[in-house]
């Protein structure tokens, strides 16, 4: 049992983090808490993709280790089993930058909401909206 859990511990971590983020987004009433949950959710997905790129058995980071200038112009045989998969890394690099951009826009919207309603709790905002009929 323990061996079974340990053989995929990265995937279990990803599942637990995704559940925590989803719970914060759905169950918490404070808007900043919802945003924190969204950040946790995003890094959980990124962790999943990075875990796919790992190869066991002597693989290293995807950077060519030999002399690149001497290699230019010649045919070089590179064994794919010696390097991790670079494609998930590239996609997640883009995803991190985009996630920070979305967080910035969401925080700007949050400041506007606070200016208008003077609170950040979801239930109070809904109550004010019902009372004023807006």
């Amino acid at each position: 049992m323990l061996e079974y859990v340990l053989s995929k511990y990265n995937f279990w971590t990803y599942a637990i983090l995704l559940i925590i983020g989803l719970y914060a987004m759905v169950g918490k009433k404070n808007l900043v808490k919802k945003l924190i949950g969204m950040n946790i959710f995003q890094s959980a997905v990124i962790l999943f993709y990075i875990s796919i790129g790992v190869k066991k058995g002597g693989a290293t980071v995807p950077i060519f280790l030999g002399d690149a200038h001497a290699a230019h112009g010649h045919e070089i045989i590179i064994d794919a089993a010696h390097y991790f998969i670079p494609l998930p890394h590239v996609l997640m690099l883009t995803a991190i930058v985009v996630s920070v951009a979305t967080t910035g826009v969401a925080l700007a919207v949050l400041i506007l909401i606070y200016k208008r309603y003077k609170t950040l709790e979801m239930d109070e905002i809904m109550k004010i909206r019902q009372d004023t009929g807006a």
Partner: peptide, 17 residues
């Protein structure tokens, strides 16, 4: 992520994230 070999992602996360 550094442990998993994704060094570029790790330093982007450290600076940007």
């Amino acid at each position: 992520w550094t442990e998993m070999g994704a060094v570029d992602v790790a330093f982007t996360e450290a600076s940007v994230g």
